[in-house]
């Protein structure tokens, strides 16, 4: 909950409040098909570099129409290179459906500046990011919560908790990734958990993550360090929840650090995590 206070609580409060009003006033929602204008397709980039071996990838596609069928065509024939400020260079090669992975064993190193270069459709796109440090996750635990007795009336299920020491005197930005039985949860905007340390700078943070798991799940909880810009990007994704509601904010394009008119983001993170088996 804590991790979401800054970015989401205010919004959730009003969202909850308006949902409550709508319930009282028998307001309603009608599914409609809208005819929306369609803009020119653009290159979209989802690029993650970490200090772990298996978590580095670049995904390339062309943007598509917004609506009932959003088809984003993969870009399969791009040249993708990553360099750092010490001169090290690594090439990413195409695997399948626009997914590129390092051609050889690669691990990012904290405090280095990484630059991604993509050549696709005859255009060159670049993006840079620092790879910030991350504190060690001390513990990851879980407990069973029942709706009836929970002050938040959350769904029945197992909830994960984590503890770590936030570094004082610097601004830190964090993301939490949850990997359930080998699959990263990022199905919709509510799966994006990011925060800055404004409310707990220097504290030993203990918090519970608002995602349910079942008995038998093997869950990895990863704490990722982010740059301020990457945090803004993820926060903007997270803000897509409840979009268009009573207090939805003015819609805006998500931030991007990719040059030349592309959309998406290149983010470098250090990762610290633990895996638990829910019994």
């Amino acid at each position: 909950m804590l991790l979401t206070i800054k970015s989401k609580t205010m919004k959730n409060l009003t969202y909850l409040f308006s949902a409550f009003l709508i319930l009282l006033l028998s307001g309603c929602e009608t599914v409609v098909d809208l005819e929306l204008e369609q803009s020119e397709p653009r290159l979209s980039v989802e690029a993650i570099v970490t200090d772990q071996q298996d978590l580095n990838y670049v995904k390339l596609a062309m943007s598509g129409p917004y609506g009932k069928n959003t088809e984003t065509l993969p870009v399969r024939d791009a040249q993708v290179n990553l360099t750092d400020n010490t001169g090290e260079k690594i090439t990413f090669t195409h695997q399948e459906n626009g997914l590129y992975k390092p051609a050889s064993t690669f691990k990012g190193i904290a405090n280095r500046l990484y630059t991604l270069t993509i050549i696709a459709n005859g255009q060159t796109y670049t993006a840079s990011s620092l790879l910030p440090e991350v504190p060690q996750v001390d513990t990851v635990g879980y407990r069973y919560v029942e709706t009836k007795t929970d002050p938040f009336s959350r769904k029945d299920g197992y909830y994960l908790s984590l503890a770590f020491q936030d570094a004082p005197e610097v601004n830190n930005y964090y993301k939490i990734d949850l990997i359930r039985n080998g699959k990263l949860l990022q199905k919709d905007a509510s799966d994006i958990l990011v925060t800055d340390d404004r409310l707990f700078n220097g504290a030993h943070v203990m918090d519970e993550v608002n995602t349910t798991f079942s008995q038998g799940d093997e869950v990895t909880l990863n704490l990722l360090s982010l740059t301020k810009e990457a945090c803004e990007y993820y926060r903007a994704i997270s803000a897509l929840q409840g979009q268009g509601g009573l207090f939805g904010r003015n819609p805006a394009n998500l931030p991007t650090n990719i040059s030349n008119g592309a959309v998406g983001f290149f983010s470098a993170s250090a990762v610290s995590g633990k895996t638990v088996q829910i019994k």
Binding site: E46, G64, Y66, G67, Q186, G264
Partner: peptide, 8 residues
């Protein structure tokens, strides 16, 4: 227009 981050 639309693009994706993961499945989002």
């Amino acid at each position: 227009g639309a693009y994706r981050h993961g499945d989002i």
